[in-house]
Design a binder for these strands. Structure first.
Lengths: 231, 231
DNA sequence: CGTAGAGGATTGTTCAACGATCCCTCAATA
DNA sequence: TATTGAGGGATCGTTGAACAATCCTCTACG
């Protein structure tokens, strides 16, 4: 009986936790991620609420969730827009990543660590690369780093980085050169994973720092050119 | 002319037009921070909405904002309550603090650093201690660490920690032994500041780590006792 | 003593309305 | 021609009301 009650408690998370606003925000989030709503797009309460068949209040709550994730920006009396990252935003994202991710690696205790998640993300990236799915490689890459942060076993840290990685996707979408952007990092992720498997935190941290510096440089370079085109 | 336009653009930021929901959440946030609404308090829509003269919808929007900040928890059909942190929450808060704050110190470049903010917080703490205002000492203590994080010059990192420190205040209100809790850390803050003034990052980081470990231990010890009493 | 149920109070959700603000258009003026 | 100012339409911000759903308390009954 206790077993069954526990199972029920697990299921409850699936049922009750999905409010209408959360489902709406899920839809919008994936639309934004896939580029259906490019950065800068205004999301009208009327049209979206009408199309999805939800009330304005519910929609505004969904907007609020996504605003909190920094995917949308809210301008008073003007509505919400898909965020357009500035170059400074991208730099700050990488500054935060470097600070936190390196600190996570440094703060690891003695090996062995639970590296299944990291290995899974590496496999995911390799599979996507084999099929030429470079967007998938980018996603797997983000998964790798999310799993890395998960090693810190801190809910708050993980949540911060979830939001940072979601923002990073916005930048990737503007850049839109997924192969050139993501391909080189498959091998570097592998190297980081191997260093961790060897229990060599110091090497892993140094690889990670180099990775992030290079990635920032490359993203900013392409991003600056791209932003210059549009504006 | 371009000069003046630039000045005006700077001012636009502090024109600060905010919605009433945000203003309401500002009020409630500071009330919670100062302990006017202790953890566990239920915030009734009717009474608060009536007292502040805003409609239920607007108030609920303010509640949602604060719920996102983890200051309130929402229970279905029961309303919102000022968050009561668990011991695990407190531990995670300190885990995050240690990760981020130490990484900030480690990531500092070459001295000198802009330490005016830190010195100001130290002075604030000393002044409060002189007057026996131990709650003020706790506030100054939080200011010290907020200024410390500001040295990273990362907006996202600063925002994460702002929210973490706001949560920490919830714990302090439960513990409610401000003198025993905060007094010992005035001297340690001074030591950290002095190490930074000497440009000795390594010493500063090690002092900081020791500080956080001791503080966590002390808070959790008292906190566990306190929670045991009530529950 | 324990339990079922009635009733009141509170929250959940939606809708309609009105004022406020923004943006676009167009005419008037230097 | 370029700039200013006045409309007007569209959209957002906020309120108030209404009704359903849920919770809490108190009472009555076995």
């Amino acid at each position: 009986m206790a077993e069954q009650l526990k199972d029920l408690a697990d299921d409850r998370a699936l049922l009750g936790r999905t409010s209408t606003a959360e489902r709406v925000s899920d839809i919008l989030r994936s639309r934004i991620a896939e580029g259906y709503f490019p950065p800068g797009t205004r999301l009208s309460e009327d049209s979206i609420g009408g199309a999805l068949g939800v009330s304005r209040n519910t929609l505004r709550e969904a907007f609020r969730l996504l605003t909190h994730e920094r995917l949308l920006v809210h301008e008073l009396n003007r509505g919400v827009f898909v965020r357009v990252l500035t170059v400074e935003d991208v730099e700050d994202i990488y500054r935060t990543r470097r600070l936190v991710e390196c600190a996570v690696v440094r703060g690891l205790g003695e090996p062995p660590y639970g590296l299944e998640g990291l290995a899974g993300a590496v496999a995911e990236g390799r599979a996507a690369a084999r099929e030429g799915d470079w967007k998938g490689v980018g996603t797997a890459n983000i998964h790798f780093h999310r799993e890395l942060v998960a090693l810190a076993a801190s809910e708050r840290t993980a949540e911060l980085m979830r939001s940072v990685f979601a923002e990073l996707r916005l930048a990737f979408h503007v850049v839109d050169e997924p192969e050139r952007l993501h391909e080189p990092y498959i091998a570097r992720n592998v190297a980081i994973l191997e260093a961790l498997q060897d229990g060599d935190r110091q090497k892993a941290e140094s690889l990670l720092a180099g990775y992030l510096d290079d990635s920032l440089e490359r993203v900013v370079e392409v991003y600056r050119r791209r932003v210059g085109e549009d504006g």
